[in-house]
Write a protein that binds this DNA or RNA. Sequence first.
DNA 1: GATTTATACATCGCGTAGCTAGGCATAATG
DNA 2: CATTATGCCTAGCTACGCGATGTATAAATC
Lengths: 111, 111
Amino acid sequence: MNAEMLKGHLDNILLAVLEPGPAHGYAIIEAIRQRSDGSFDLPEGTIYPALHRLEVAGLLKSRWIDPPTGRKRRVYELTRSGSEALAARRTGWSRFSGAVDALMEGGACPV
Amino acid sequence: MNAEMLKGHLDNILLAVLEPGPAHGYAIIEAIRQRSDGSFDLPEGTIYPALHRLEVAGLLKSRWIDPPTGRKRRVYELTRSGSEALAARRTGWSRFSGAVDALMEGGACPV
DNA sequence: GATTTATACATCGCGTAGCTAGGCATAATG
DNA sequence: CATTATGCCTAGCTACGCGATGTATAAATC
């Protein structure tokens, strides 16, 4: 799987993963790896800057929590505009993947 | 539709579009626009450098033709290794899109 | 109790690649 | 003859994923 395939899609993925509820960066990485069946094993240098970006953009908000066991975590969750963005990005993704499918499947064999 | 969504997928698209037979740059742009239902209306500054890249990489080869009507064109076609690459990239794309689908559809609601 | 591993966050700099903007040239169209 | 469509090309910008690196704590292993 190509390296830059993910470009422009990571934000969508992060928003979608956070839809069910808040999570912290490390758990998000785990969730992405598992729910993609190992296809996406993203390094921290990819995830953390992306989360910061999304927070600055107002699509996520974060808070620090200090759980009884384990160390301090920064927990992210969707803002309202994050939810709205996710909806728009879902349709954007189906449009995109549909278009690529149409092109990749080809078939346009000139009789 | 996001700007960098296409990154890492354009090469695949070009290879797929050229699978049925040779074509020149301008016609490729047209084909992509039509077969993507207008989703991808790619500028020349995107296509031509990509075609050159693929030729340098040995996945495409080109020749100039001077048709009886119209002006000179540079026509590209798949090489053998281009065909092989396309096959691999098709499976890469399904893996990728499947993984993104799984993540975007979400559903992983913690009971 | 010391070492190792897993958890957890952060940032800098690199490379890649699509896009904007610009340029050039020829054929068809009015 | 002027305009539009066709057809090709490149330089430079920019965004962003990723590798490398650093820090720190908790759990596991020896």
